[in-house]
Amino acid sequence: MRGIDAGYLVLSAILFSIGAFGLLVRRNPLVMLMCVELMLNAVNLTFVAFGMMLGDIAGQVIVMFVLVVAAAEVVVGLGIVVAVSRRKPGATADDIRVLRG
């Protein structure tokens, strides 16, 4: 095992956590969207790192799919954000109506 291999995994774990933390803490939907991108990037990093360690190209191929999902998610997410903001400027995921769950 090379130290740097572990480094990639640890880095992506930290990146993922930052994204997850930001998504739950920040109230701006656009920033939340960015946090989703952070999380997906962390996963991408993990996939490529595992692919490298396994000597397998699939890790890189999977990243392509994650890219597509990320792009689609941004489109759908931004669409909803724009629709909400039209109705209510300064909208956030649970500002308007406090979670009653």
């Binding site: 572990a6 995994l9 774990a13 396994l54 000597g55 190209i57 699939a58």
Partner: peptide, 25 residues
Amino acid sequence: VAGLVIAGVTIVGGDLVSGARAATA
């Protein structure tokens, strides 16, 4: 999440990945 993964990476030691090598290509 970060703690689990980091702990996992340290526990594993040796070969970091346990999977079959080059399973797809």
